[in-house]
Design a protein around this nucleic acid. Structure first.
Lengths: 352, 352
DNA sequence: TTGTATGCGTTATCAC
DNA sequence: GTGATAACGCATACAA
C-alpha cells in the first residue's frame, strides 16, 4: 500500500535514494541505507512490480503455452522450465490452449499485452500465424514438442519418428504382423511422425501399413485423448477382416483408453492384444507400471527450451532456426508380448 | 511495439479517443471509431497491460499457491479455479511451494509486488504470518484444502476427518483389526484430521489406535510423498510384533508408494494386505482403477474457492471466516478385501 | 554520495 | 463527441 515516496519521506531522503537501496544499485552511505531500510520495514513497503516493469520494459516473466498442463508430459516439461526460470529470477505463466487455435491466439495476445519477455509454445496451429504475431511484437519464442514449418524459429522436441519405429519394431520382433495404429490429429507433427516411424518399421520387415489400420484422433487431442483411445479401439475391434494382434498408441492417454476398451470387450493384455504407447508416467502415479512405452525426456525438453529462450531474452543468443531433437527411451513392460497365434517365426529368430 | 499515441497520430485523434474506442467506454462517432479501428489493425496495436494495470490498480489476475501443481489433486483444483477465473475475465498465476514455508513467503511477496487481485492459498505455514502479510497489503485471500487458525479467513476444503472415518470403518467391516496409518506432516491439518477420523472409527469399534501404528511423513509432503509411503511401509513391515492386515494411507501418493513397497516385499494386495487411501486419480491416467479411496471433490473445491475470492475482489463479498466443508465419496475397489485370517467375525455380521 | 527532472503507456477528470 | 492535462509508481539520465 505504501509507495516509494512514503518511504523516502519517512527516511528523510529522496525517492531515488530509496530506489538505489532497494535495487542495490549505485552508491549509498551505510548510514542512509540503514535509515531507508528501517523505514521500509516499518512501513512494510513492497515495491510495485507494475511500475517497475513499465519503466524498465522487462517483466522477468516467460510464458509456457501448452495444450493441457494437467497432462503429465507437459507437467514434467513445466518442471524443467520452472527450474531454469527460477535460477535466472524469472517467473513462468502457464496457459492451456486445449489444442484450440482460437485459444492459442487469444493467449498470445494476452501475453503480448502483459509484456512477457518470451514465450515457450507447443503450437496448436499449423499455420505460421502465431509466429507472425509474435515476430511483429519482437517477442522471443522457442517451440516445444512439435515440428514447425517456420524456418527461423528454434525448437526442442523428442524424436517421434524414431520412437514410433522402435515401438513397432519391438512388436514385430515379438512376432506381431497385424498392428493397428491409434494416433492424434492429422495436423500435429507428433501424430504424423509416430505413424511414419511405425510405417518404416513395418515396411522394413516386408509388411505394409494399410490406411484402414491407421486411426486418427478427433479434434480434442488434449482433453479427450483417452475417450479417443477408447473409441478408436472399439472401431478396431468392430472392423471387418482379421483383427490386429497389437495396438500402437501415439500417446499414454490413448493407450489407457485402449486398455479400458479392451477390458470392456473381455480381452486381456497382452494375451489377447499387445499394447505399446508413447510417453511414460511418473512412478509416483502408478501402483504398478504396466505399459511398454517410448519415454520422452520431458524434463530435459523443458529445460533446454527454457535455456534457449532466456538466451534470446538476454540477447546472448539469436534464433537460428535450429531444431534440437532429443532421444527417447524404450521401456519394455508387461503390456506387450508375443501374439497368441504366432503366424510366423519371430523376426529375431528368423534373422539369427 | 506501437503505442496508443501512435494510433492516435495515425487516426488523427487524441489518445483519449483511442482509449475510448479500445475500451468501449464513453461516446464515439461511428466515423472516428472506424478510423481508429483501421489505424489499430494497420499498426497491429496491442494495448500495454502494465500501463493499464498501473493506472487502474487492478490486474485482473489471481494466484493459486499450492504445494505441487503436478499433484493430480491440485491439478483438478486448478481446473476449477481456471474455469471460474476465465468466466470473469481473470488470469491465474500458479505457484508451487513444495510445502516450504520459505518458498511460500517468497511467492506471496512476489504476488504482492505484482499486484495480483487475490490469492488462493494452500498454506504450508501453520503460523498466521502469511495471513498477516496478506492482510497488511489488503490482499483478498481464500484458503483451500486445509484448516487454519485464523478466524477471519474464508476456506474451502473436504471433510478429512469423516473420510478417514469412512475408509477405516470400511476396513473394520471387512474384518480388519490391526490397521496401520501412514500420513503426512504433523503440522498439516489434513494429515492430522485423517488420523483422527481413523481413530474415531477404531474406537467406535472398541479398538484402539496405538501411537506405534501411526507413521508421520517427513518434511517433503509434496514432492517426496511416494518415497515416504514406500519408506513408512517398510517400517511397518520391519516392526516388532503382529503385522497389520491393512494400511490406511492419507493420500494417493503414499498409497502407491505403499503398494510398491508391498510388492517388493513379495506381498499381494489385497490378499496379504489391504490398502485404502485418500484422493482419486482421473480415469485418463490409469489403465485399471485399483485403489479403494475417499475421493475429494477437487474440481468443486477450486470452483467454490475461486468464486468466493472473486466475490471479495469485486467487493460483493466480505470475508466472514466461513469454512466450507465438502463431502468426500467412498469408492471401493480391489485394493481392499477381508484379511487372510479373519480373527473375528466381521463387524457387520456381528451387529446384525 | 545524493537529488531533480523526465518519461514509461495508459486512463480519470475536467474542459470545450 | 472530443481533447488537454495530470497522475499511477518507479527508474534513467544528468546534475550537484
Amino acid at each position: 500500500m505504501s509507495t516509494i515516496s512514503d518511504v523516502a519521506k519517512r527516511a528523510g531522503v529522496s525517492t531515488m535514494t530509496v530506489s538505489r537501496v532497494v535495487n542495490g544499485t549505485g552508491y549509498t552511505s551505510a548510514d542512509t541505507r540503514a535509515r531507508v531500510e528501517s523505514a521500509i520495514t516499518e512501513l512494510g513497503y513492497v515495491p510495485n512490480a507494475l511500475a517497475r516493469q513499465l519503466r524498465s520494459k522487462r517483466t522477468k516473466t516467460i510464458a509456457l503455452v501448452v495444450s493441457d498442463i494437467s497432462n503429465p508430459f507437459f507437467t514434467t516439461i513445466a518442471r524443467g522450465v520452472e527450474d531454469v526460470a527460477a535460477a535466472h529470477g524469472f517467473s513462468v505463466m502457464y496457459c492451456n490452449t486445449d489444442e484450440s487455435e482460437a485459444e492459442e491466439e487469444q493467449y498470445l495476445l494476452m501475453l503480448i499485452e502483459r509484456q512477457v519477455d518470451g514465450v515457450l509454445l507447443v503450437p496448436a496451429r499449423s499455420s505460421g500465424a502465431s509466429f507472425r504475431l509474435l515476430h511483429a511484437h519482437r517477442m522471443p519464442v522457442v517451440v516445444l514438442d512439435r515440428r514447425v514449418a517456420a524456418h527461423d524459429v528454434d525448437s526442442v522436441r523428442c524424436d517421434s519418428e524414431a520412437g514410433g519405429y522402435a515401438l513397432t519394431r519391438h512388436l514385430i520382433e515379438l512376432g506381431h504382423r497385424r498392428i493397428a495404429v491409434l494416433t492424434g490429429r492429422r495436423n500435429v507433427s507428433t501424430s504424423v511422425d509416430r505413424v511414419a516411424g511405425a510405417r518404416r518399421a513395418l515396411e522394413e520387415a516386408g509388411l505394409t501399413l494399410d490406411d484402414e489400420m491407421v486411426h486418427w484422433g478427433g479434434f480434442n487431442f488434449g482433453k479427450l485423448n483417452q475417450a479417443d483411445g477408447h473409441r478408436m479401439t472399439q472401431e478396431v475391434l468392430a472392423a471387418e477382416g482379421a483383427c490386429p494382434t497389437a495396438l500402437f498408441c501415439a500417446n499414454n492417454f490413448i493407450g489407457f483408453g485402449a486398455i479400458r476398451a479392451l477390458r470392456e470387450a473381455g480381452l486381456r493384455v497382452p494375451d489377447d492384444m499387445s499394447v505399446v504407447a508413447f510417453d511414460d508416467l511418473p512412478e509416483e502415479w502408478v501402483s504398478e507400471p504396466f505399459l511398454t512405452v517410448a519415454a520422452q525426456p520431458a524434463y530435459e525438453i523443458g529445460h533446454r527450451a527454457a535455456s534457449r529462450l532466456l538466451g534470446q531474452v538476454s540477447g546472448s543468443h539469436q534464433p537460428t532456426g535450429e531444431n534440437v531433437v532429443l532421444p527417447f527411451e524404450l521401456i519394455v513392460r508387461r503390456s506387450s508380448g508375443p501374439p497368441r497365434t504366432a503366424s510366423v517365426t519371430p523376426l529375431t529368430a528368423a534373422s539369427a
